[in-house]
Simulated scan of single mutants.
Amino acid sequence: MASVIYFLCALTALACAFLLLRSYLRQRFRLLLWSGLCFAGLAINNMLLVLERIFLPQIDLSLFRLLSALIALLPLLYGLVWEEE
Rank of each mutant, 00 (worst) to 15 (best):
L21W: 05
L77W: 07
L77F: 10
S23G: 09
I44V: 15
V81C: 02
L74S: 07
S68R: 03
F18P: 00
A40L: 15
R22F: 12
L21V: 07
V4I: 15
L70W: 03
N45I: 04
I5L: 15
L33Y: 12
L48F: 13
A17Q: 08
D60W: 02
L25V: 11
L33E: 08
Y78A: 04
I59D: 01
L42S: 05
R28V: 06
L37R: 07
S3Y: 11
L80R: 00
E52A: 12
L33Q: 09
S23Y: 06
V81W: 07
V50N: 08
T12W: 06
P57S: 04
L76G: 00
L66G: 04
L61N: 06
F64R: 03
L20D: 02
L42P: 01
R30C: 01
L61E: 08
S23K: 11
L48S: 06
N45T: 15
A17E: 10
V50A: 11
V4N: 12
F7L: 15
M1R: 15
L42F: 14
F7H: 14
G79E: 01
L63E: 06
A69T: 09
R22G: 07
L73F: 10
G36P: 07
L76H: 01
L66T: 06
L51G: 10
L19C: 09
F29E: 12
L76C: 01
S23V: 00
P75T: 03
L67V: 13
I71A: 14
W82M: 05
F64H: 07
I44E: 10
M47I: 14
W82Q: 02
L77Q: 01
L32Q: 09
A13N: 14
I44L: 15
L32Y: 03
A72Q: 05
L37K: 09
L76W: 05
E83I: 03
C9N: 14
E85F: 07
C38V: 02
V4R: 10
A2Q: 14
N46R: 14
L11Q: 09
F7C: 13
A72Y: 04
L42H: 03
S35W: 11
F39R: 04
S23W: 07
Q27C: 00
L66C: 01
L73V: 08
C9D: 13
L80F: 00
R65N: 04
L76D: 00
L21M: 11
L80S: 06
F39G: 02
L70Q: 02
R65K: 12
I59L: 10
A17K: 09
Q27N: 09
L21R: 07
A69C: 04
N46F: 14
R53E: 14
P75H: 01
E85P: 05
L37V: 14
R22A: 14
R26E: 14
F7W: 08
I5P: 11
S35K: 03
E85K: 13
S62E: 07
L73M: 11
L20N: 06
S35P: 00
A69R: 05
P57W: 03
W82D: 02
S68Q: 05
C38P: 00
G79C: 02
S3R: 10
G41A: 08
E52F: 01
A43F: 11
F39V: 03
L80M: 05
S62Y: 03
R26L: 13
L74F: 11
P75K: 04
G41M: 04
L32H: 04
T12A: 15
I5M: 15
A40M: 12
F18N: 08
L49R: 10
